[in-house]
Amino acid sequence: MKRIFLSLVAAVSLALPAAAADYTIIAPANPGGGWDQTARSLQSVMQQEGISGNVQVQNVPGAGGTIGLAQFASQSAGNPNALIVGGYVMVGAILTNKSPVTLKDVTPIARLTGEYEAIVVPASSELKTIGDLIAALKADPGAVSWAGGSAGGTDHIAVGLIAKAAGVDPTKINYIAYSGGGEALAAILGAQVTAGISGYGEFEAQVQAGTLRLLAVTSAERMAGVEAPTLKESGLDVVVENWRMVAAAPGLSPEQKAAVSADIEKLATSAGWQEVLKTKGWQDSYLSGDAFDAQLDKDIQATEAVLKDIGLVQ
């Protein structure tokens, strides 16, 4: 009888799925920003889809994500239940802040989302097209002021690439960094700057309301439902996507990394995540494994080159 009971227990144990891992996700920014939204979307979908029974989000803001990255790398080593979100802005921040901790000190798992940049001017501006803005930039680079996010971030990099493609010295650009999207938006709407640049989602409501004029987007092809040319259409060979990623802790075994990667793949292919992408207006840029590692290396090298051109990195 005892043997039969043990056999039944063993059979039931084999039939049950492995317990879902609990995760803690570091959002290396203040609540409300892109990384925080990404972390909390991960939290919601992983619990909703049964990928994880319990997901906690912790905000560790500062220095373009490098403070959170350093804390994560030192405090979470070997922990398979710890994750951090990051992205293109972090790549630039690591370089401009000369951060001793880099993405090589964690375990990149996958690129998740992307968002293209938009160039706007206030509705009252005399600049009607991207051609008008580029003509003004060529005539006097310093007289054209750009409002965007943190120095060395995606917005700053995009302006540097635009200047370079237009034949303007990138070190001459007049870029004004704002710590929050709301501050930058107020400066643009108040015509305190010539133009603004950020992810399209940051400006969508104002563009639709007619208070901002959308001049161009940085996608390779026209964005669905967006009435604006790409920079490439306008004769500027520039494509910029502000991507976001998720990484695991350093020091994981191959088996632990594979388990985390499998959970993130389940998330990326779930109906819940696809709904988040649609609701947030994020591009599905999922890329994982060796392909993501190779692309990340390329992006880091390209970013370093651009920041040297702008004069932010020696």
Rank of each mutant, 00 (worst) to 15 (best):
P31S: 01
G32I: 13
G33Y: 08
W35N: 11
W35V: 01
D36F: 03
Q37W: 02
T38V: 03
A39R: 00
R40G: 03
L42V: 03
L42E: 00
L42A: 01
S44Y: 03
V45E: 03
V45G: 01
V45P: 02
M46Y: 02
Q47D: 04
E49C: 10
E49N: 13
E49T: 12
G50R: 11
G50N: 11
G50W: 11
I51S: 05
I51N: 04
I51A: 05
S52F: 13
S52V: 14
G53D: 15
N54G: 02
V55E: 08
V55C: 07
Q58I: 13
N59H: 14
N59R: 09
P61E: 03
G64W: 12
G65N: 01
I67H: 08
G68S: 05
G68Y: 07
Q71T: 04
Q71K: 07
F72V: 08
F72A: 05
A73I: 06
S74P: 06
S74W: 06
Q75L: 06
A77G: 07
N79H: 05
P80D: 09
A82G: 10
L83E: 13
I84C: 10
I84W: 06
V85G: 12
Y88I: 00
V89L: 08
M90D: 14
M90S: 12
V91N: 10
G92C: 12
I94P: 02
L95N: 03
L95P: 01
L95F: 07
T96I: 11
T96P: 02
T96V: 15
K98Q: 07
K98L: 00
K98I: 00
S99M: 06
S99I: 06
S99L: 08
P100Q: 14
V101M: 07
L103I: 12
L103S: 09
K104C: 10
K104P: 09
K104T: 15
K104Y: 13
D105K: 04
V106P: 11
V106F: 15
T107M: 15
T107S: 15
T107I: 14
T107D: 15
T107V: 14
I109C: 07
A110Q: 14
R111D: 09
R111Y: 08
T113Y: 04
T113I: 14
G114N: 13
G114E: 14
E115I: 11
Y116D: 09
E117C: 07
I119E: 08
V121G: 03
P122A: 11
A123K: 15
S124E: 04
S124N: 04
S124Q: 06
S125L: 10
E126Q: 12
E126Y: 04
E126F: 02
K128V: 08
K128L: 08
K128T: 13
K128G: 05
T129C: 05
I130C: 09
I130H: 08
G131C: 07
G131N: 13
D132S: 04
L133W: 10
I134L: 11
I134D: 08
A136T: 03
A136H: 06
L137N: 02
L137R: 01
A139H: 11
D140E: 02
D140A: 03
P141V: 00
P141M: 00
G142F: 06
G142N: 09
G142Y: 06
